[in-house]
């Protein structure tokens, strides 16, 4: 059949378009949450803890709220990393079986999705740790 006589890549893409390799792909929403959940939670926490700290120091009060916000950001980051990890199990990526390596593959696999899920595990995981490190000034007891 001449329609399939394009290059290998063309065949691949045809397969992707017709949905052949989409059976076990995770929803894009979960992948994007996995990638951006951690950093976004950090960003929101950053601006709000800054304002809370300023407000507390100007008006008085305890800094516990800031600590709670950082903890919440770390939890969201962890949830995003877990979501990315579960997405990766669905696409059969690098982390599920074998050592850490870049998810690269043949062109007929959902490589973009696999990449995104691996990226989400690392990035959201990192931001979980970053959010915890951000709360250090509260524990070192710098105060106002």
């Amino acid at each position: 059949m001449s329609a399939e006589r394009g290059s290998g890549a063309a065949r691949t893409v045809t397969a992707a378009v017709t949905g052949e390799s989409r059976a076990n792909e995770p929803a894009a929403g979960r992948l994007w949450f996995g990638l951006l959940g951690g950093p976004s939670a950090w960003a929101v926490a950053f601006v709000s803890t800054y304002l809370v700290a300023e407000s507390t120091c100007v008006r008085g009060g305890a800094l516990t709220t800031a600590g709670v916000i950082w903890l919440a950001a770390a939890l969201v980051g962890a949830a995003a990393a877990v979501a990315a990890w579960r997405a990766q199990r669905t696409v059969g990526g690098a982390f599920a079986n074998g050592p850490l390596r870049e998810p690269q593959a043949r062109s007929d696999e959902p490589v973009g999705r696999r990449f995104l899920s691996a990226a989400g595990i690392v990035l959201s995981g990192t931001f979980t740790v970053v959010s915890l490190v951000q709360s250090l000034p509260l524990f070192v007891g710098v105060g106002c």
């Binding site: 490190v133 250090l136 000034p137 070192v140 007891g141 710098v142 105060g143």
Partner: peptide
Amino acid sequence: LIGLLVYSLSAHR
């Protein structure tokens, strides 16, 4: 960096 961060914060205080 985390070591320097803690050092810097305590110096700050």
